[in-house]
Design a protein around this nucleic acid. Sequence first.
DNA 1: GATTGGCACTCCCGACATTCGAGTGCCAGC
DNA 2: GCTGGCACTCGAATGTCGGGAGTGCCAATC
Lengths: 338, 338
Amino acid sequence: MQEERRLAVLRAIVEDYVATEEPVGSKALVERHGLGVSPATVRNDMAALEDEGYITQPHTSAGRVPTDKGYRLFVDKLASVKPMSAAEKRAIATILDGAVDLDDVVNRSVRLLSQLTRQVAVVQYPTLSRSTVRHVEVIALAPYRLLVVLILSTGRVEQRLVEVGGELSDDDLTDLRSLVNRAAVGEVIADAATALRALVPAEGGTPVTAAVVETLVEAMSDHRSDERIAVGGAANLARYGDNFDSAVRPLLEALEEHVVLLKLLGEATTGELLTVRIGHEGPYQELASTSVVATGYGPGDEAFARLGIVGPTRMDYPGSMAAVRAVARYVSRILDEA
Amino acid sequence: MQEERRLAVLRAIVEDYVATEEPVGSKALVERHGLGVSPATVRNDMAALEDEGYITQPHTSAGRVPTDKGYRLFVDKLASVKPMSAAEKRAIATILDGAVDLDDVVNRSVRLLSQLTRQVAVVQYPTLSRSTVRHVEVIALAPYRLLVVLILSTGRVEQRLVEVGGELSDDDLTDLRSLVNRAAVGEVIADAATALRALVPAEGGTPVTAAVVETLVEAMSDHRSDERIAVGGAANLARYGDNFDSAVRPLLEALEEHVVLLKLLGEATTGELLTVRIGHEGPYQELASTSVVATGYGPGDEAFARLGIVGPTRMDYPGSMAAVRAVARYVSRILDEA
DNA sequence: GATTGGCACTCCCGACATTCGAGTGCCAGC
DNA sequence: GCTGGCACTCGAATGTCGGGAGTGCCAATC
């Protein structure tokens, strides 16, 4: 089957090119991989692969380099997912198990991912949108000044100051506290918000209740925390080698634009699927020479947020995919336990 | 006075080199600056400056480049602090006045600084150590599970979960709450911690009180928040041009090592002084080609934390110093008002 | 029909030579 | 002490030229 061998050749080209960073020729290919054919045969296959757009030559009489399309085929059809070694698994477990709170989990994950893959790692903080309300606390800091604390099932805590028009007795406060808790606790935040809003007219509308409810609803719908992102391993950009301006600069800029990063990671609605975006496949022309490997994570079956890595199109896809998946699983498990 | 002119020549060399990034020769110097002497004279001065170690030639028959010692003299003696333009002042005010909370202030400052100076900006979050306790809240999340919230004068809020051995009535909780608040509110955190610790034996040591106090003390002495740092403008690293490996890579690594960054910013105890570290002057060999301009900031006369910029030794010192100082002043004022 | 060895061809890369010019150091004269 | 002049140095840019890796194609072979 020459069709089969052609794919083997493509796989070999991708692997060698990723390893050596140099265009790979027919002779080196048959030597390094145990294809039982002659260089001339490989050359024919290469010509065919080039016709189909999977590989290309930087210039005549140079070796071949995979195109984005070639990487795509490699990832979709040819990449056997390289399992993590036992040592790596142990490292992931020990590092993540030591985390003390949510922020720590995220920070450790980012570090871990960047070390495992030697790429830039990106981890989105768990979003509010699918989490449930665990508790609401209302505290009188001073007359006319309340602190509202919103505690979510993900462990995230949001606090807001509220200036109110009237003074409250301790009893008023207790009533208010139980009122909002009865309405919100246990609900997904979207539902909690509507339940809270329903309180205001029913209650005849004490201005204090209204103010507190408004603050809570705002805190729930506030997407700032949806956009929170941790980035790590930027030092790995140094290994990009050449094409600094064309590749590294736009990436550095993107790393500071969290909105762009979120787009790159992919919509959280994509769920837990491991997604790979290769080169030009995304909406950003400037990032045409970078690829993204990302997946969703979160407790239970629903994905709360996403994490992944960003690197050059010429990257170790099997390894990166395995690392991303492994870290996502461990983090999810930890969130499950919490 | 030839001595005076020599310094003028040094200043001109620094300014031209910063602007052009190329070794500057005697002819170009007299043309671009209005020194009323001939190139030959300047050459003599240059030779003298080189003997004294202020400038150097990359190779024979090239222009001159300032040494670290040269930059040092420039900063200490020659740099007239370039005042911010009215537009820049307005921009600083509008951007920072829009901040909604402490985190927002820090984030905006970092952005602002990096944009003003076109360098990497670093802002340390206000440290706990000098802030006072504004309020402590204890909330029963579930039986055996308390949430302790610590609110500080800087606006920072720390929360911790506490698992306790016994169940608490509402009255117990109220007692506990007022107990710890009486001990801690208004105190500098170091004093608050000792006051809290004193509670435990006096109280006969209910295990719950002990657990809560322990958590609070730990939260207060926890230096994690001392080490929190915001970094921005990493994309400006792209303008480093050449010497990627020797300059950019170590800097990228340092930017992820917050401990290193804190060292670079300088000990907070240095106070509000504007400090400039040039090239090799610091303890880090790898950062020999980078300089740091930093200052303390914080409400009142005492500095709570530091902020600054990191850039190549070849940077616009007067501009950077002015920007750092201006931002620090505005941030301090905002913290004063809060 | 697929595979293979052979062969001419292409073109990048590094080495070497050459030129060009900016910049210097120094000296004699003002 | 400043200046103009002059010889000198050396890096950057450019040109030339084989070596070599790699290709495409073709005829021969299985």
